[in-house]
Nucleic acid binder design. Sequence first.
DNA 1: CAGGTCTCCTGCTAGC
DNA 2: TGCTAGCAGGAGACCT
Length: 272
Amino acid sequence: MPELPEVETVKTVLVKNVKNKTIKDVVINYPRVIENVYTEEFIDKIVHQKITDIKRRGKWLIFKLTDLTMLSHLRMEGKYFLETELEPVKKHDLFILKFTDGTELRYNDTRRFGKIYLFKNEEAEEFLDKRLGLEPWDNNLTKEYLSEKFVTKKTPIKTALLDQSVITGLGNIYVNEVLFLSKINPNRRACDVSKEELKLIIKNTREVLEDAISLGGTTIISYAAGHQIGQYQNKLKVHFKKGHPCEKCNSIIKKESINGRGTYYCPSCQKK
DNA sequence: CAGGTCTCCTGCTAGC
DNA sequence: TGCTAGCAGGAGACCT
């Protein structure tokens, strides 16, 4: 499941592989993957556009085109592969950008949760601004900022940190890791987390994400960035570790569901 | 209006 | 061994 480090890794691979390529045709095998434009209109608008750059905001990939912006969210299992046009199309290749040089960018998504949007440039900005809060490395991300956001929040801190309009980029895996490193029980109400603990959350968020990016992300089950395999799964301390002893205190790591999300934590290190 | 629940999907797995 | 019910999950829609 791609979170910020995985999307950053995909972005880097895409810049290397498809930047400056020109789209000569599009194949849409699953029209519902395109969210805000009808299939015919999408094809009509995107053909002959050149990919001038690829950026990332939160978990969103931003394809800058000649005079449009294509946004792509990978959700659970979205992957991009660069192939030649001779390569047989795979089962879950939902849409394909064909380039003038004979290569193709294929979007593969087993669960079909991923979404593509096509916008005018300023509309794309608005769309993202409306949904996304601060990037983890934004200087405005301080304990005061989080404290203000959380002061009335009675939801579990785990849930509050998954809200993309506060900090953007954290998903289920890294939130579990960050809360473990910060020694905070994921069930604690967000409003009951102290400023000092919020400071720790920010520090650990940055460290965990930087570390994961440097290792190419986490590969659990199905995530892959153009055949690159991330290595951060070897460093996970609680996620997927149910029944294992905690590294710090030897207690048994617990798994429970918080707001429908699998949550792993050490019941003894992480204080309520 | 905050906070909860449902929905979208497929593939894997536990249980019989 | 083969079948199926249940589960997983990001984020928007919808309900209370």
